[in-house]
Design a protein around this nucleic acid. Structure first.
Length: 971
RNA sequence: GGGCGCUUAGCUCAGUGGGAGAGCACUGCCCUUACAAGGCAGGGGUCGCAGGUUCGAACCCUGCAGCGCCCACCA
């Protein structure tokens, strides 16, 4: 005896039950199997900086939808999970926490200890992240979990670096970098943001050597005068032309510098028309310095203090030095003016402190040839972007071919495998001979050799080695290792069966902000290392913003923990809600609320709750305090932290419950179910209708998945399940289930359609669908359309639905649509005349013979759905004397009122109908009166309008008749 | 400054050349044995602004305004 389902779907129970079930059965696993086609995805590895937020939940839900769908289609689906060490980000988070809790800096701890502490952090958050993914239902092959600092990844990084070095694609050079003086590291262009801050704009002058003239210039950073090596003017500027080639004198450091002409740097209409040039501390000045061969004087120490090149200012912090420079210039009478000005200042994303352009020695990857190949991979169509427009972002960025600075002055990451030695080359030859795993380059500037080795050879690391080599202290940019992700996780550089089978991967799922940082680099290094593209498709999904339109991030504190949503609404609700958001537009706003931990009231999140500015919120309902939800680094024993909620996920929760109850209804009616074939051509119209719709919806859903239109998938399945299957088909089946002669067929089709819906929804809502699949297995182990089959042991491995296209029957759909129109019309009349739900009414439908015959087939349903006692239908019927009327294109419906006519109400109703028809008629007539329209629009459009016009005219005439008869009878 | 997008009902968003849509919120009636996380019915929008193309524009083009993101950057 099948058990009866509870009235409400309990998501937590389903989650607890099916997660271990799926994992134990090994459904998540994928192994090389040449007989099956692979479908592979590598996860964009989340940073171990903290827990996942809704943005990650979206990204991973979409991947799981694709994986589960393809798995059901019979592909050997493999999803490789993992996490990213996220160099700067993670080190910064941990350093900040240590500073907060212990008051220590990384220098107090030392390299080894800091790295140890970050590993601890990593272990904690990696576990938390992987758990979040598991709870989300992500069907990753957990055996394959990787971390970007794993030995397997380290080896790939090492190999890649070595090959690039050997091929001359890696070089060491002086470059102006964005220097973070707090973290004391170079940060990438992508890791800085600009913020407007109040500042000043000073105008100074330098004396011209051998003349009593001065040259005036302005700056927002006076301390950089210490590093000036020229003053530039525009070549055509008459004010300064005579000074070009002369020298100016910087009194502060007692240096003479040339006055040069540079049309690129100088805009004569701005400021004084003369520009001081500090090549070592300004990006545009640097370019100018290169053009003119100017000396580049670095005046800063790594910590932002002035170095020995700053003369008497050496040792001062740069802001103190600025003050002293201003004072000194003023005393010399060389300060002309100061004005207040808002300044756009570059800040480090990580430390939030101002960036200093800083000349330092860094490692670079030459982009030219790598970029070339990566561009052609997309231009040739070997890699496709969805939506297509994002290919532009990718191509534009690669087109710049800016060399990639890969060294970072950090301790957390892949150490650069370079050793420096001053030994003779003869020694190198003697030690390493013709070895293939070691390469070296001469660095004349520092009179040393740069050695790159595949492994940490004792000749390099041993303190007693004659080489006396010392390893570069820096680590590699995080993106260097993530760029290898799609091939390194499958075992590259070894030629493994996994690599040959799963690589290139099928699709990369990501958001648009890392198309350049990550996607482009994966393509470049994937092609370089393997000769193959890393993925065929790139699916770019939107970003989730908070209720104020800002991107979610840990530092803002506006990220929402998906587990909060899961605990409130269930995983399927979360996943379904996220899928609905995955449209092709860019951003989705997600207003959130804090759930009061005391009384569960939803308190909308306000701006001041972000950035952890507000520690305490008083609940407006119960007046008790709590801490708003967010990524707080530590517990607060005094204030409970609120969980976060968003109404957006109610849809998914309600939908899961609706589906649950539809299944509950079906199961309640299966006690005497027997499986048997269903022959569509011999089915009654209501079955042909639902199968037609099912066929159409299945095909559209599959097409939407193929094109990564996941929101369409969600919408189609929601509408079909709720508005067609539940609202109409299930209702219609009630009468049929009561009659013994129709019951058996009704059961078979009901179960068959439900079975298909459950399968179609499984990729989006894995838990509720598995629950229902298992419940169906008890009552109807054999089911399906058109011929029943033993059901798979889990919906996860059930075949993806597909039905013969002949099942789609537009004519049948039109007939059902007309029935629905009639039922709605009668319900509307009932509602208007406040006829009690249970009261049966008498209805007359006047229509032509053919329509009447078609409606006749549906009589039981019309009667049932509109609660009709007596239904008269045909061309021979006239309007009954006392009736409410509804006029339609194919029929008129009359509701008998038996003396209960509220004349006023009926008049109002009819007038409203007439008004609406009249309005439509006006637009139609306006079109037809325009002979441009009649002559130029396609004939079928014109004909359609003509027909509409005559229909509307007829309807209005009828309404007028009814109105006038009411007028008479009311007297 | 350049690029890519967005602006549609109170809120969050679909639609994308020929009759304005969904969910939530709102109104009325209903605890009708699948479902009150529900059912039935209903109200609500000159589709950011201004031009243009077209027989016809929410949809295509141009400009403007506001917003978001990416890139570059005002010495």
């Amino acid at each position: 005896m099948p058990r009866e389902l509870p009235k409400q779907y309990n998501p937590q129970e389903a989650q607890q039950r099916w997660l271990p079930f799926w994992i134990e059965r090994g459904y998540y696993f994928s192994d090389v199997d040449p007989k099956r086609r692979p479908f592979s995805i590598v996860i964009p590895p989340p940073n171990v900086t903290g827990a996942l937020h809704l943005g990650h939940a979206l990204n991973n839900t979409l991947q799981d939808v694709l994986i589960r769908w393809r798995r059901m289609q019979g592909y050997n689906a493999c999803w490789v999970p993992g996490t990213d060490h996220a160099g700067i980000a993670t080190q910064a988070v941990v350093e900040k926490l240590i500073l907060q809790l212990e008051g220590k800096t990384r220098h107090d701890l030392g390299r080894e200890e800091l790295v140890r502490r970050i590993w601890q952090w990593k272990d904690q958050y990696e576990a938390r992240i992987l758990n979040q993914l598991r709870e989300l239902g992500c069907s990753c092959d957990w055996r394959r979990t990787r971390f970007t600092l794993d030995p397997i990844c380290s080896r790939a990084v090492r190999e890649t670096f070595f090959r690039l070095f050997r091929d001359g694609l890696i070089y060491r050079g002086y470059r102006l970098v964005n220097w973070d003086t707090t973290l004391q590291t170079a940060v990438a262009d992508d890791e800085i943001f600009h913020e407007t801050v109040p500042g000043h704009f000073w105008t100074f002058k330098y004396p011209i050597v051998g003349s009593n003239e001065y040259i005036r210039f302005s700056t927002t950073r006076p301390e950089t005068m210490l590093g000036d090596t020229a003053v530039a003017v525009h070549p055509d500027d008459p004010r300064y032309r005579h000074l070009i080639g002369k020298k100016a004198w910087i009194p502060l450091v007692n240096r003479e510098i040339p006055i040069i002409a540079d049309a690129e740097l100088v805009d004569p209409t701005l400021g004084t028309g003369a520009v001081k040039v500090t090549p070592a501390h300004d990006f545009r000045d640097y370019e100018c310095g290169l053009r003119h061969g100017l000396p580049m004087i670095n005046i800063l120490n790594p910590d932002g203090t002035i170095n020995e090149n700053g003369g008497k200012y050496a040792g001062l912090d740069r802001y103190q030095a600025r003050q002293r420079v201003i004072e000194d210039m003023q005393q010399l009478g060389l300060l002309e003016s100061v004005e207040d000005r808002q300044i756009e200042l570059a800040h480090s994303d990580r430390s939030k402190t101002p960036i200093e352009p800083y000349l330092s020695e860094q490692w670079f990857v030459r982009m030219a040839s790598l970029a070339e190949k990566a561009i052609s991979a997309v231009e040739s169509g070997r890699i496709r972007f969805f939506p297509e427009r994002y290919a532009r972002t990718y191509l534009d960025w690669l087109g710049e071919r800016r060399d990639w600075c890969i060294s970072r002055q950090l301790w957390w990451g892949h150490r650069i495998p370079i050793w420096y030695t001053r030994a003779d080359e003869s020694l190198l030859r003697k030690l390493f001979g013709q070895r293939q795993d070691i390469a070296w380059q001469r660095d004349d500037k520092h009179e040393q050799w740069l050695i790159c080795a595949l492994t940490d050879l004792p000749e390099l690391t041993d303190p007693d080695s004659p080489l006396q080599a010392r390893q570069d202290p820096d680590v590699l940019d995080t993106w260097f290792s993530s760029a290898l992700w799609p091939h390194e996780v499958f075992g590259w550089p070894e030629d493994t069966p996994d690599l040959r089978y799963y690589y290139p991967t099928s699709v990369l799922v990501t958001s648009r902000d890392i198309i350049t940082l990550w996607v482009a680099r994966m393509v470049m290094l994937g092609l370089y290392n393997t000769g193959q593209i890393p993925f065929h498709h790139v699916y770019v999904h939107p970003k989730i913003l908070d209720g104020f339109g800002e991107t979610m991030s840990k530092s803002k504190g506006n990220g929402v923990d998906p587990l909060d949503i899961i605990s409130l609404y269930g995983t399927d609700a979360l996943r379904f809600g996220l899928c609905q958001l995955a449209t092709e537009t860019q951003d989705v706003r997600m207003p959130v609320a804090n759930v009061c931990p005391h009384c569960q009231t939803l308190v909308p999140q306000k701006l001041e709750h972000l950035y952890m500015r507000t520690r305490k919120v008083i609940c407006p309902q119960c007046k008790k305090p709590f801490r708003p939800g967010g990524p707080w680094p530590t517990e607060d024993p005094e204030l409970p932290t609120a969980r976060q909620a968003s109404e957006r996920f109610e849809i998914g929760r309600n939908f899961a419950n609706k589906l649950w109850n539809a299944a509950r209804f079906v199961l309640l009616n299966l006690d005497d179910y027997t499986p048997g074939p269903v022959e569509p051509t011999q089915l009654p119209i209501e079955d042909r209708w639902i199968l037609s719709r099912l066929t159409q919806v299945s095909a559209e859903v599959t097409a939407a998945l193929e094109n990564y239109k996941i929101a369409d998938v969600a919408r189609q399945l929601y509408d079909f399940t709720w508005s067609e299957f539940c609202d109409w088909y299930v209702e219609m089946s009630k009468a049929r289930l009561r009659e013994p002669e129709t019951r058996q067929l009704a059961q078979r089709v009901l179960v068959g359609v439900l079975d298909a819906i459950v399968r179609l929804l499984h990729p989006l809502m894995p838990f509720v669908t598995e629950s229902l699949w298992q419940a169906l297995a008890e009552s109807a182990p054999q089911r399906g359309l058109p011929r029943p089959q033993p059901a798979a042991e889990s919906v996860m491995i059930a075949p993806w639905p597909q039905f013969p296209s002949e099942w789609h029957q537009p004519d049948v759909e039109r007939q059902i649509a007309r029935m629905q129109e009639l039922v709605r019309a009668i319900r509307n009349l009932r509602s208007n005349f406040q006829i009690p739900e249970k009261a049966e009414v008498e209805v007359t439908v006047r229509t032509d013979r053919e329509t009447a015959e078609q409606l006749e087939l549906l009589r039981p349903f019309i009667v049932q759905l509109a609660r009709i006692g007596q239904l008269h239908c045909g061309p021979e019927f006239a309007k009954p004397p006392l009736a409410a009327t509804s006029v339609h294109a194919d029929f008129e419906a009359y509701l008998h009122l038996q003396g209960l006519v509220d004349v006023e109400a009926e008049t109002r109703r009819l007038q409203k109908q007439r008004q609406e028809k009249e309005r439509q008629l006006q637009t139609v007539r306006a079109k037809l009166a325009n002979h441009q329209f009649v002559s130029k629009a396609p004939p079928e459009v014109v004909e359609q309008q003509r027909q509409l016009e005559s229909e509307l005219l007829a309807q209005i005439r009828l309404l007028d008749e009814h109105l006038s008869s009411l007028g008479i009878s009311s007297r």
